[in-house]
């Protein structure tokens, strides 16, 4: 009896709670559109957030409920877009292949370290101390926060700076959000000319910190026939919608910071 009564009381409480919750689950049942589930299955389940929604399930719900575009999944690419279109019964939307690019060329030959960092070996950690241990406060720290988040092994740290391998890149943007200096952007794969510097210092300060930096001379801006390249915050940046891969900026650049990054 000494063991039976406690067991009965605890068991009774448990059963009562179970029955109550089952009834509540029936009463408050939320009906889910079955297309959401199907679309969720056809997505790669990387939950990378490149589409702008909080994970694959959220994106699937947004397509059905809010009419979000069907071609936003970067890791899934054309394949996923076609599957989603088939489920919805619409024509497949065009998918432009994208890739990530690191806008920094300040490798170990071009920059020095400002102090020795002995803490946790991560870019985010170093960034907390005087904005990083390199002479350039805007450049790649090189401890590979982007490498550790990449699910496609498409980014490597070479000679102190991160480099993307476009052939492997799924353009999910995980590396872009991991980079504490916001050096990584996602751009169309076909547009292969990039400015590899993001320094917001003026020309002189940039040159002191890094041999390879953009000095903001605006030569490229003048030479570009399409108005695709502009200098803001003392560094050039390319509008990939306007760029035609002509290479005029590359030829004009006196510090050779504009590179072709063809795979």
């Amino acid at each position: 009896m000494t063991y039976l009564i406690p067991a009965l009381i605890l068991g009774g409480c448990g059963i009562l709670a179970g029955v109550l919750l089952t009834i509540a689950a029936k009463v408050f049942y939320v009906k889910v559109d079955e297309r959401i589930e199907k679309i969720g299955e056809s997505l790669p389940q990387a939950n990378c957030g490149a589409c702008g929604y909080a994970g694959c399930a959220d994106y699937a719900a947004a397509i059905v409920q809010k009419g979000a575009a069907t071609n936003l999944c970067r890791p899934g690419g054309a394949d996923a877009a076609a599957k989603i279109a088939a489920i919805l019964g619409t024509a497949a939307a065009e998918v432009v292949p994208m890739t990530a690019v690191v806008h920094c060329s300040g490798d170990c030959n071009a920059t020095q370290s400002a102090f020795l960092f002995d803490g946790v070996q991560s870019c985010k950690a170093v960034k907390r101390f005087y904005s990083g241990n390199g002479t350039c406060k805007y450049g790649c720290i090189g401890l590979g926060d982007c490498v550790s988040v990449c699910e496609h092994d498409a980014i490597k740290v070479v000679n102190g700076i991160a480099k993307v391998i476009p052939a492997l890149c799924g353009a999910c943007g995980q590396c872009a959000s991991a980079c504490p200096n916001q050096l990584i952007s996602i751009k169309p794969l076909a547009k292969h000319i990039d400015v590899l510097c993001s320094s917001k210092d003026n020309g002189k300060a940039t040159k002191l910190a890094c041999k390879n930096g953009c000095i903001g001379c605006k030569m490229c801006e003048k030479k570009c026939p399409n108005g695709a390249i502009t200098v803001t915050d003392f560094h050039a940046s390319i509008d990939y919608d306007k760029c035609t891969n002509c290479g005029a900026c590359m030829a004009a650049c006196p510090v050779k910071v504009i590179h072709t990054c063809e795979a």
Binding site: L21, A24, F28, Y29, V30
Partner: peptide
């Protein structure tokens, strides 16, 4: 659990 169900609905 009850609150969760109610809020979800």
């Amino acid at each position: 659990q009850l609150v969760e169900n109610i809020l979800k609905k």
